[in-house]
Amino acid sequence: MASRIGKNLRTRALKRATQRWSTLADDAPTMRMSMLRQLRNRARALRHQLDRFLFAADARLTLPMIGPNAIQTPLHTDWSYRPEVWRGPLAQQGLVAVRSRSQLGEEVVLHHDCKISELTLRQIRNTREDDLAPFGLRLDVFRFDGSFLALSIELPVDAVEGLQRRHILRLSCVAEMEKPLEIFARLNIRHGPNTEQVVRELPLSEDEVWVEFDLAYTKLNEKRVERMWVELILEGAEMNQIVLRDITLSRRPRAEL
């Protein structure tokens, strides 16, 4: 009984809130400027919370059966992650004539030096039976007059918590393209004023596409690690469509000798 009453109260509260904002939207064209400015700030804060709710709700309601957090990882993995573009629906799902440093979602940024952008970037829905990720990312490249093209993926704070030089990081990728090209993965780790960078080429001709970054060969200052991000550098992408069906990252300690 108590749960039913609570559910009814929540339903009524949400209904009243919807009606209230509907009335405010009708009144906005003639509202006093001071009140309009105040309510605009409240509306933006509300929209942020609504976007968070929709991201979580849509992710749970539109997943492949295996779920969005199903990640194939090596033995002894102590951290793994699938970035949000591949994990759940974004509020803004596509960009056209993409300018350099344009952001899609909270984590993905496209970098290039084209004078005229003929690039499109769009989140798509994965529907194949063997897809583990609910969503994919499609990049269409038409005429390309630049010298570089890269996708940057910002990783969460917990990616660097406890990070040590004894760790090995793995990046796994499921990619499709209209014609062959080269993709290089560059791992960036900011520690203090310095940034460690490790580059690997993705073996796109293999059935399982993954690369590993062994931090033992870096000069990483374990006590000053601040952030980590990955860049996918695309070579020869002109007049091509690249679909990244899935991107996952994982971390494990190296076996002790």
Rank of each mutant, 00 (worst) to 15 (best):
M1G: 09
A2Q: 14
I5S: 11
G6R: 15
K7R: 13
K7F: 10
A13N: 09
W21F: 07
S22Y: 05
T23I: 12
P29M: 15
P29Y: 14
R32Q: 12
L39Q: 13
A43N: 10
A43H: 12
L46H: 12
R47P: 00
R47L: 01
L50V: 02
D51Q: 10
F53R: 00
L54Y: 10
L54K: 05
F55S: 10
A56M: 09
A57H: 14
A57Q: 07
A59I: 03
R60K: 08
L61M: 03
L61N: 03
N69T: 09
Q72P: 10
P74T: 07
P74C: 10
L75F: 05
T77P: 06
S80V: 01
S80Y: 05
E84K: 14
E84Y: 13
V85S: 09
W86N: 13
R87N: 10
G88F: 07
G88L: 08
P89Y: 02
L90G: 04
Q92L: 13
L95T: 10
V96D: 14
A97S: 15
R99I: 02
S102W: 01
Q103Y: 03
Q103P: 06
H112Q: 04
C114L: 01
K115H: 04
I116T: 04
E118D: 00
L119T: 00
L119W: 08
T120D: 03
L121D: 00
Q123K: 00
T127R: 06
T127F: 07
T127W: 09
A133N: 01
A133D: 00
P134N: 07
P134H: 06
P134L: 11
G136P: 07
R138P: 00
R138Y: 04
R138M: 07
L139S: 05
D140Y: 07
F142Q: 02
R143S: 12
D145C: 06
G146T: 05
S147C: 02
F148H: 15
L149F: 12
S152T: 12
S152I: 09
E154M: 14
L155H: 09
E161I: 11
L163H: 14
R165F: 04
H167Q: 12
I168V: 15
L169C: 11
R170D: 04
R170P: 05
V174A: 10
M177I: 06
E178W: 08
I183C: 02
F184T: 06
R190Q: 12
G192V: 05
P193W: 12
T195M: 14
Q197G: 01
E201Q: 13
L204E: 11
D207H: 12
D207W: 10
V209K: 08
V211D: 00
A216Y: 12
Y217G: 10
T218Y: 13
K219I: 04
L220W: 13
N221V: 13
V225I: 15
E226T: 01
W229K: 03
L232N: 02
G236T: 01
Q241Y: 03
I242W: 09
D246W: 00
D246G: 01
I247D: 02
L249P: 06
L249F: 10
R252K: 13
P253W: 02
P253T: 02
R254Y: 01
A255L: 05
